[in-house]
């Protein structure tokens, strides 16, 4: 019982983290059709700014958390301004490759300016403790991850449904031209979307630093690959799909960890991707994606 509960919590915590990152990708994609491969480097910028602040003498974990989120949001907006604005109206492939380029540049800048080796950051280690609930021992980090992700997603849903800017973002994902005709500035909508996406990445970065206790140049890259996969299973561009896809991915991974014998543990990632590709054979448009036939009118 204890074991099953522990694994359930594991799956939920992994899933929550993937959902956060996948949502960040989906927000940007749904509006401007950009497949943001540089999302992992937004996590990287956030983590490295915590590392630098700690190296310069920052000791308060709360400030570090705020810094991580703010740095990520700023980085996302800056990436948009510098790299993605020139290709805003270009085909999807152009944007995708640009983002890929940005990702390579930033990863290598970390190597060049700081170090190719992992650097230790202990400022957020306090978040990672064992909590005891009667007979159960759970990791505080996982519980927090679950709660914080839930609250963040709730806040995002409220923002998208209740505020004018949120409404504009949702409308822009359907028909950007009309949104602009209503007098809403394209730049503001896109910058907000990137800021949201960055803030979500920043929250994920906090948990990553707390869990690993170190930062390295490729810190966010593999996580973002998984988040992309989550987006694809959920249906690319659908926010609910991204969140659901992230959760599903968490459950598949933990399920495989439990099911696979120890010596085959290394195949976990490979098998996860195989399962997902197999899912896509049956639903190429993703679980919550809509099948759009050629020539269908946008509704």
């Amino acid at each position: 019982m204890d074991y099953a509960l522990q694994q359930l919590l594991n799956a939920l915590a992994f899933g929550a983290e993937y959902s956060l990152v996948a949502l960040g990708l989906a927000v940007v994609f749904s509006i401007m059709g950009l497949v943001n491969f540089a999302h992992g480097e937004i996590i990287g910028v956030s983590a490295y700014s915590v590392f630098l602040a700690a190296a310069l003498g920052l000791t308060s974990p709360i400030v570090a958390v705020l810094l991580a989120v703010a740095a990520a949001a700023l980085a996302a907006v800056a990436f948009e301004r510098v790299a993605f604005r020139p290709v805003r109206y270009a085909p999807t492939t152009t944007g995708l490759l640009t983002a890929f380029g940005v990702s390579i540049v930033v990863q290598n800048l970390f190597m060049l300016l700081i170090s190719p080796k992992p650097q230790s950051v202990s400022i957020l280690n306090g978040l990672n403790q064992m909590w005891f609930f009667g007979p159960f021992a759970v990791s505080s980090l996982q519980v927090m991850e679950l709660i914080v992700s839930g609250l963040t997603i709730l806040a995002l849903v409220l923002f998208l449904n209740r505020s004018t800017l949120g409404l504009a973002i949702r409308a822009a994902s359907r028909d950007f031209a009309t949104v602009r005709l209503m007098g809403i500035k394209a730049n503001r909508v896109i910058a907000t979307a990137f800021a949201i996406s960055g803030a979500l990445a920043g929250i994920a970065a906090v948990f990553i630093i707390a869990r690993r206790g170190s930062v390295s140049p490729d810190l966010g890259f593999s996580l973002v690959l998984k988040a992309f996969v989550a987006c694809v299973i959920g249906g690319f561009g659908s926010l609910a799909g991204a969140a659901a896809g992230g959760m599903l991915l968490g459950f598949i991974e933990v399920g495989l960890l439990v099911a696979l014998p120890q010596e085959y543990g290394g195949f976990k990632d490979a098998l996860t991707y195989v399962i997902i590709v197999a899912l896509l054979v049956y639903r190429p448009e993703g679980l919550l994606g809509q099948r759009v036939e050629l020539g269908d009118k946008e509704i």
């Binding site: 640009t98 380029g101 940005v102 540049v105 990863q107 290598n108 800048l109 060049l112 190719p116 140049p217």
Partner: peptide, 18 residues
């Protein structure tokens, strides 16, 4: 200067696309 070639590759891609 480890990483310089990576930066150059990325910059080539980004500038080309823009």
């Amino acid at each position: 200067l480890l990483g310089l070639s990576g930066v150059a590759l990325g910059v080539v891609i980004v500038l080309c696309m823009a």
